[in-house]
Design a protein around this nucleic acid. Structure first.
Length: 373
DNA sequence: TTAAATT
């Protein structure tokens, strides 16, 4: 059965900066001499699995100067654990990052940006797995049931993707491990008010502790698709049409869009005499035109992030006014994702403006180089 | 019928 998470119901409890300082900004020094980063250090959760450290830094660096950042990875496999930390130089930028990037949709995920709690053993392993919940119980009701044992950081109920009905399974993350322990003692094997069956409450599995078999399966799945054979010739022709349409900002049927490799594009475009500079070792550069003067980088992340791996965004600004000059660039790693973003966003209405989105051509390169736009 | 939250 396919499942999904009720991400829109994600509990938005702010981890909250510890309120032990009256100083406004900058690196704060506490009585014991340690730097207080409670107002600058953020934890970012629900990152896409394939997001790299560079993409992570690029996304959060678009807000302000970063003191340090880290995408947390599995020590053995190097796989992303789906979360990371960003410590800004200025606490105002940390605040801005929460306001502009929390809830940002990146591929299939909705990221969460909140203040990191001070690291401590007492907050680890405070996550509970709950099963046997009445199908009618809402996330809010589940929280009410558990909140008597402590402060809840997050809660979720898993639902069937097709029907949307609860699977009777959920997660509760407490602030402290002791709170989670008390909740198990108090609620495991108990019937919620009005329920016919008792619930099971136990510590959740740590997702980073995979079995060897699961790791092998994962490795196979993530490497196998890189070695797929060449595309059928007939298919390539349709895709060339599609490419040419998109390179010049012409709407094309979505049905023609599917995956093909940068190598295929390079050979085809040189044959067709098209000068596409969108392709490079860094990824696929996309030209976005008709942005408002107030546009900033977060707009580009919001627009393109849902389509796949975005490595960089850039709003071109006037040197003196610092206002957007009406255009920007987005770099995406994978061709098919970039193509889908272009097909979907070209002609898209953003406020009172119609966006023009295409692969970057040498034409834009010349225009931007000479500042002609 | 367990999803990536403490460096």
């Amino acid at each position: 059965m396919v499942t999904q998470i009720i991400s829109t119901m994600e509990t938005q409890v702010s981890n909250g900066p510890t309120s032990n300082s009256s100083l406004p900004n900058g690196p704060l020094i506490s009585a014991n001499g340690a730097t207080d980063d409670s107002k600058t250090n953020l934890i970012v959760n629900y990152l896409p699995q394939n997001m790299t450290q560079e993409e992570f830094k690029s996304l959060f660096g678009s807000i302000g100067e970063i003191e340090s950042c880290k995408l947390v990875r599995d020590k053995i496999t190097g796989q992303s654990l789906g979360y990371g930390f960003v410590n800004y130089v200025d606490s105002n930028d940390a605040d801005k990052a929460i306001n502009t990037l929390n809830g940002l949709k990146l591929q299939t995920k909705t990221i969460k940006v909140s203040y990191a709690r001070p690291s401590s053993a007492s907050i680890r392993d405070a996550n509970l797995y709950v099963s046997g919940l009445p199908k009618t119980m809402s996330q809010k009701e589940m929280e009410q049931l558990f909140s008597q044992y402590g402060r809840i950081i997050t809660s979720r109920i898993l639902v069937d993707q097709v029907t949307g009905v609860s699977r009777g399974v959920g997660f509760i993350r407490f602030d402290k491990r002791i709170e989670a322990e008390e909740a198990i003692k108090g609620l495991n094997g108990q019937k919620p008010l009005g329920a016919s069956e008792p619930i099971t409450v136990k510590f959740a599995n740590n997702p980073s502790q995979k079995t060897g078999q699961a790791l092998l399966t994962h490795l196979y799945q993530t490497t196998a698709r890189r070695y797929t054979g060449p595309l059928h010739h007939q298919t390539q022709r349709f895709r060339l049409d599609n490419l040419l349409n998109m390179a010049y900002g012409v709407k094309s049927p979505l049905s023609l869009i599917s995956r093909f490799s940068p190598i295929t594009i390079d050979s085809m475009t040189s044959l067709a005499g098209v000068n596409l500079t969108g392709a490079s070792s860094a990824g696929w550069c996309i030209f976005v035109y008709n942005l408002s003067p107030e546009a900033d980088e977060s707009v580009l992340w919001q627009l393109f992030g849902p389509f796949g791996a975005v490595t960089n965004v850039k709003v071109i600004r006037d040197f003196t006014t610092n206002k957007c000059k009406g255009f920007g660039f987005v770099t995406m790693t994978n061709y098919d994702e970039a193509a889908m973003a272009i097909a979907s966003l070209n002609g898209y209405r953003l406020g009172d403006r119609i966006l023009q989105v295409s692969f970057k051509t040498s034409e834009e390169f010349v225009k931007t180089k000479h500042g002609a736009i």
